[in-house]
Amino acid sequence: MNTKWSKAPFAVLIMLSFVITFATANEGLAQQGDKAAPAAAVAKPKQATKGVMFNRLMKRTKSNLPPDQDGIHDPENEGTYMLQPPKEAFQGMPRAITGNRVDWVKMMTDGLISPRADRLDPNAEQEIFEFDVIREVRGSMPDVMFPHDKHTAWLACENCHDDIFIPQVGANQLSMALILTGQKCGVCHGKVAFPVTECRKCHSVKKDTMTKKGAVNK
C-alpha cells in the first residue's frame, strides 16, 4: 500500500501532462481531464506518451495583424498607431503559407521590392555569390541543395562564415535537431526566414538511388 501511494505524485504528474497538452491543443480541458484520470491511476508509461503532444503540425496562427492587435504592442501607446500594419505593406505581394505569409525571395527576384544593400547608397549593388552546395542526407528525405545566390542576395559572407558554418564542403555537422533549436540554419530559418516546416524548399534534390547506398526510395 505504501509503495503504491508513494507513486501518487508521479501519477498526478502524468495526468497533468495529459490535461495540459490537450488543453493547449484547444480541446476541452474538463472533458480531457476526466478521460485521463483512469489512465493515470494505472500509470502505464505507454499510455502516458500518448498524451505528449508537441505542436508538431505547427498549426497556423493568425497573422499580419495590425500592431495594436498583435499581442505584443501596447494598445494604450500612441506610437503603436503610427506604425504601419504589415498587411498594408504586403498588399499584392506573393503569398506564402508560413513566416510573414509572403515569399521574400520571390518578392525580390520579381522586382517588387529592392531593399538597399547599403545604409546610405540606394544604388549600391549587392555582391551575389553563385555556388550551390548539395548535402547528401542520411534519411529518406531528398538531399539538400543550399543555394549561395539566394542567401547572398540578402546576406554578406561574414554573416555565416566562419562563425556559423565552416566554409568547406562536408565540414559542418548538421541535424534537424540543431536547426529546430535555433542553431546552424536555424539561426535564421524558423526565426526570420521561412521555417523548417517547409521541408521541400531545402530537401529538393532527388536522391540518385542507383549509386547511393542505403537510399530508401525506389
Binding site: 505593406a89 544593400a117 545604409r119 554578406a156 526570420v192
Partner: peptide, 12 residues
C-alpha cells in the same frame, strides 16, 4: 527587411 538587406544591419 522591405527596405534593407539583412547584411546592412547584421554585417555593416
Amino acid at each position: 527587411r522591405l527596405r534593407f538587406r539583412c547584411k546592412v544591419c547584421h554585417a555593416d
